[in-house]
């Protein structure tokens, strides 16, 4: 029992870190705690958190997906151009999500059927998807998306007093948490990451599980793209650059092992919040954006070092 308590304590470490961070930031600048600012933080976090949720699945299987930022840019650009061309917003959103799903599946197929290491495969598709975005947009932002109330609501609106992106993030979290913890698919994800050979020998189709997690990640990147496009009312060909690194950082901050098999999606949510609060807090306190990078890097490093110590 005491062992289990210890395990819980270490699992909740990131949460304590987040609370500590919030206390420090609030003391240094009390305006952090204003409703407007908190909504602002959450709205920013929602985009990176949704991507990081997908990344959690991928990392749990022992993989990595560097192409999420490019997937976001490409799906966002396609959605924006469809809207600008006058397509129904719901159909547009459906097409963008489907495209994200397919781009993710392509990653999965290359990795499983082509037997390419995930790092290399998604490094390649990261470049390919970014290039396709530039080709598609001719390197220019797409704006003039028209006056679709329902699409604008997606990034800027409120639902029961909460920003819609935040509501979307929470719903995505609940669904993905349920999938990971309560379904046979979730169990298979952990098994493939924990010991792929044993999983295969237990009748689990590891390839199919892997293709599915990359597809989920692509889908979620497209969902983030829609939020971002709606918020900015335009699509940038350079959108989502280095988002993959933020997503990986959030997953790692949340305590998920890069070796796969160990971790949880709640930690990823906390990890994304830590990064969000850190960004926002440093802006409020007036830390220069150059130093912000340094601090962010140090926080990630500290989190991983502490995690090491715990497991040693």
């Amino acid at each position: 029992m005491s062992n289990q308590n210890k395990e819980w304590l270490s699992k909740l470490g990131p949460l304590f870190g987040l609370i500590l961070l919030i206390i420090v930031v609030s003391i240094l600048n009390p305006s952090f705690l204003s409703i407007a600012n908190i909504f602002n933080v959450l709205r920013q976090v929602s985009i990176s958190a949704i991507i990081a949720f997908g990344m959690t699945f991928v990392i749990l299987t022992g993989g990595i997906d560097l192409s999420v930022g490019s997937t976001l840019a490409l799906t966002g650009a396609v959605a924006a151009s469809l809207l600008a061309g006058g397509m129904d917003p719901f159909l547009t959103m459906g097409i963008a999500l489907l495209l994200g799903l397919i781009l993710g599946m392509v990653n999965g197929v290359i990795i499983t059927k082509g037997k390419v290491a995930p790092f290399i495969a998604t490094l390649a598709t990261m470049t390919i998807y970014r290039g396709l975005t530039l080709v598609y947009t001719e390197g220019r932002p797409i704006s003039g998306l028209g006056d679709h109330y329902s699409f604008q609501l997606f990034g800027k609106g409120y639902f029961l007093g909460f920003p819609v992106p935040v509501v979307t993030m929470v719903i995505a979290f609940i669904i993905l948490w349920f999938i990971l913890q309560k379904t046979t698919f979730g169990r298979r994800v952990y098994a493939v990451g924990g010991n792929e050979e044993a999983a295969k020998l237990s009748g689990i189709n590891a390839d199919r599980v892997k293709i599915a997690v990359y597809a989920i990640t692509g889908f979620l990147a497209a969902l983030s793209a829609l939020i971002l496009t709606s918020r900015l009312n335009s699509a940038q060909p350079t959108a989502g650059e280095s988002y993959e690194l933020d997503a990986i950082a959030a997953v790692v901050l949340g305590g998920t092992s890069l070796n796969g098999g160990k971790g949880w999606i709640f930690g990823t949510l906390i990890g994304a919040l830590i990064i969000g609060v850190l960004n926002n807090g440093m802006n409020l306190i007036g830390v220069s954006s150059f130093w912000q990078q340094v601090v962010k890097g140090i926080v990630i490093l500290l989190a991983v070092l502490m995690d090491r110590k715990k497991s040693a």
Partner: peptide, 13 residues
């Protein structure tokens, strides 16, 4: 260890 079990899993899992 390498083929039979997922070592990080519980007995149940």
């Amino acid at each position: 260890k390498t083929q039979g079990l997922v070592l990080d899993f519980s007995i149940q899992e």
